[in-house]
């Protein structure tokens, strides 16, 4: 067997070239701040009276259109939409009655941020997950990967639709020093409050221990789906409120682990393997060398 030096160099060059292209980026969540210091909201379903002050505040601050009923008499969205970043839903059933507020959960390790190809969705160091339409290509992968079915798309806009979801009023209020999320600042009952995640968790724990029997003994979002920045307390089981049991693992964990393993693995291993095959295969004449 004679090894052709030129071929060897070609293969080696390919291997090195690919190896250089290997990602050396570590940005699973750029949140440098301690989790307890990040902003969060606490929604206590046992206090909420369903007045919709929060949803009106959201409309005013974001300039979204009301979604009226057929008689144009009532702003009555039943689901999140491109125009409705948050809404109050009502559960009535075997386990009693409860309102529940819906919006982006601002996950601690958001699947949407992990999946977005162009970093149009970003986890800020302060906690909120924000969106930049100038980067977004409108692929809607974020809609698929969000475990809470949150991101919505402007289907009826021709040029050019954007992804719509709650952004914690991060750029419009918090960064300008106006206050917290419009909804939390407007809530008249104290059912919805905002602050540091650590403080809110302590408050939630206090409420549970001081009112035995009032709450389900669980703070939804403390570690569900790897933790969220919107925390829930409830008297009825969380599944009834549409807050499913997603386990405590963060969603992007498996995917990002695979990315870190498979990408460099194939980029480096592939050329090396090909080179080895090429060098050990009998040269000239293309004789039978492999059992395929």
């Amino acid at each position: 067997m004679t090894i052709n030096r030129r071929d060897f160099l070609k293969v080696a060059g390919l291997a090195v070239g690919c190896a250089l292209a290997v990602p050396d980026q570590v940005n699973a969540s750029p949140s440098s701040k301690d989790l307890n210091e990040q902003f969060a909201m606490l929604y206590d379903a046992t206090i909420c009276v369903g007045c919709n002050a929060c949803t009106m505040a959201c409309r005013q601050w974001n300039g979204t259109e009301p979604e009226t009923d057929a008689r144009q008499l009532y702003d009555a969205p039943t689901e999140l939409s491109a125009d409705t970043f948050t809404l109050i839903q009502l559960y009535q059933g075997g386990n009693g009655e409860s309102f529940v507020k819906r919006q982006c959960m601002h996950c601690v390790e958001p699947a949407c941020v992990s999946g977005c190809p162009v970093h149009a969705l970003e986890k800020t160091a302060d906690g909120p997950v924000i969106y930049d339409p100038d980067r977004c290509i409108g692929c809607r992968y974020c809609q698929y990967v969000c475990p809470f079915h949150v991101p919505r798309f402007e289907w009826d806009v021709a040029r050019f639709p954007v992804i719509a979801k709650c952004h914690f009023c991060y750029e419009s209020r918090i960064q300008k020093g106006i206050g917290g999320p419009a909804c939390a600042d407007r809530c008249p009952t104290g059912a919805l409050i905002w602050g540091k995640r650590g403080d809110l968790l302590a408050e939630a724990r206090k409420r549970i221990s001081e009112n035995p029997g009032r709450y389900v003994d669980h703070i939804y979002g403390e570690d569900d789906a790897g933790g969220t920045s919107v925390l829930y307390l409830s008297a009825v089981p969380f599944e009834n409120l549409g807050l499913e049991d997603l386990g405590t693992r963060s969603i992007p964990e498996i995917s990002e682990g695979t990315a870190e393993l498979v990408l460099p693995g194939i980029l480096i291993g592939g050329p090396i393997l090909l080179g080895m095959i090429r060098l050990t295969a009998k040269r000239g004449g293309w004789e039978e060398t492999w059992p395929l």
Partner: peptide, 28 residues
């Protein structure tokens, strides 16, 4: 055809925006 903001599809090639943890980016 599928992407809604096709006028800036080239964003997938803009180096600082490339998300190497996204398999969609990698496929593109």
């Amino acid at each position: 055809m599928d992407i809604g903001r096709w006028h800036q599809f080239y964003n997938i090639f803009v180096p600082p925006w490339i998300n190497l943890h996204s398999f969609l980016e990698e496929i593109s």
